[in-house]
């Protein structure tokens, strides 16, 4: 808690909370960049599941840079939001659940990039059942990340450590 109080009282944290534009532009960027990351992952997952079957699976790799740029902005904007209200997120189990869901989904994405999307063998044939299950898991994980992210605004226990009695 002492560390949270110290962080909340730094000039930067106060500025993030109290300057309207700094806070809401971080929120806007976090939504937009999250949509980029999830969007590209959804497109790849849908293709693996057989949607747009004439698009070569390996060609979907062309869109992964969009997800990487999105991820960079997700991390920066998320970090800024965390600096603004560190206690609010870090004392809420839902935040760690979101983090785990995102990490697991990114792990799947990394696997696609290193293997599935490099291999042209699946370009024209139906993908094996295991690959389709992993694609489903990715969709579920992103949905979980979105839901828990949205719940962060509603489920926190402590807004600010420095406000505790």
């Amino acid at each position: 808690m002492d560390y949270f109080i110290w962080l909340e009282e730094t000039g930067f944290s106060i500025w993030m909370r109290e300057s309207g534009p700094a806070f809401f532009s971080s929120l806007v960027l976090h939504s937009l960049s999250m949509a980029m990351v999830v969007g590209v992952n959804v497109a790849i997952a849908l293709r693996i599941l057989g949607v747009a079957g004439r698009v070569p699976v390996s060609a979907m790799a062309r869109f992964t840079p969009v997800a990487y740029w999105g991820l960079a902005v997700v991390l920066i904007s998320g970090g800024l939001l965390l600096v603004a209200y560190p206690t609010k997120a870090l004392t809420n189990p839902v935040f760690y659940f979101k983090l785990l869901a995102v990490i697991a989904a990114l792990f799947i994405a990394r696997g696609w990039e290193k293997r599935l999307l490099r291999d042209a063998v699946y370009d024209t044939i139906r993908l094996p059942k295991k690959a389709r299950l992993v694609a489903m898991a990715s969709l579920v994980l992103w949905a979980a990340a979105i839901t828990s992210g949205r719940l962060l605004a509603y489920t926190y226990n402590v807004l600010m450590a420095s406000h505790l009695p």
């Binding site: 999250m34 949509a35 980029m36 999830v38 969007g39 590209v40 992952n41 959804v42 497109a43 849908l46 293709r47 949607v51 747009a52 079957g53 004439r54 698009v55 070569p56 060609a59 062309r62 869109f63 969009v66 992103w142 979105i146």
Partner: peptide, 30 residues
């Protein structure tokens, strides 16, 4: 919205020149 960005958004990016080599009509399947 993620579904929209992941399909229509990716289709738009294809038309803007990303993913050259994928035909527009097959990309439209998304």
């Amino acid at each position: 919205l993620s579904l929209l960005v992941g399909t229509v958004g990716v289709f738009d990016m294809r038309m803007l020149g990303l993913g050259r080599g994928i035909s527009i009509s097959s990309m439209h399947g998304l």
